[in-house]
Amino acid sequence: MKTRIKKSFACQGIKNFRISTDIKQLDNYIPKEGDVVLFEVIETGKHKNLQTTTRNVTLMPEDQILGVFGNRYATNQFEGYVPDRPMEEYHMLGGGGVMGILASSHSKFEEVGPTRLKLIGLATDPFKRVINTLKVFKDELVPFSGLSASQTKIVLSLGSSMDSGKTTTAAFMIHGLKKRGNKVAYIKLTGTAYPKDKNLAYDMGADLAIDFSKYGFPSTYLTEEPVLLSLYETLIKDSLSVRPDYVVIEIADGIFQKETKMLLQNFAFMNTVNDVVFSAGDSLSAVHGYHLLCQMGIFPTALSGLFTASPLLVQEVESTLYKDSGSPSVPVLGLRDLMSENCPIFSNTMKVLQA
Rank of each mutant, 00 (worst) to 15 (best):
S279Y: 01
K258R: 15
L177P: 06
L338C: 03
L102P: 05
S104Q: 13
E224H: 05
F299P: 12
P244I: 06
S20G: 10
N342W: 05
G216N: 00
G297S: 01
P226V: 04
R18F: 15
A309Y: 13
T308K: 05
L293P: 10
F144C: 00
Y246P: 02
R116E: 13
D337H: 10
G94L: 07
N76H: 10
T52K: 05
E79C: 11
S145H: 02
M350T: 15
C294R: 11
A123T: 05
K153T: 05
G121R: 02
A74Q: 02
M87G: 09
A185C: 02
F307N: 11
E110P: 10
K128N: 15
A302P: 01
I174Y: 00
P300E: 03
K138H: 00
Y290A: 14
S161G: 12
F109N: 09
Q25K: 12
K7Y: 07
Y221V: 12
N132P: 01
L156A: 03
D27A: 15
K179H: 00
L321C: 14
F267T: 15
P218I: 02
V352Q: 13
V184L: 00
Q77K: 12
K179V: 04
K153F: 04
L102S: 09
R243K: 10
M204T: 09
M99P: 05
L200S: 11
C11Q: 02
G334F: 04
A309L: 12
I131P: 00
L263R: 02
F144N: 04
P218Q: 08
L353K: 15
Y29I: 09
F9H: 07
T115M: 10
H47N: 07
E316W: 10
A309F: 13
K166H: 07
K32Y: 08
E79A: 10
K135I: 09
K323N: 14
S239N: 04
S239Y: 01
M262F: 04
S8A: 14
A10S: 12
R55G: 01
P328M: 12
T3A: 13
T124N: 14
G165R: 06
N266H: 01
V314L: 02
V41A: 06
K32Q: 12
G67L: 00
L229W: 03
Y186H: 11
G45P: 12
T44H: 09
D125V: 04
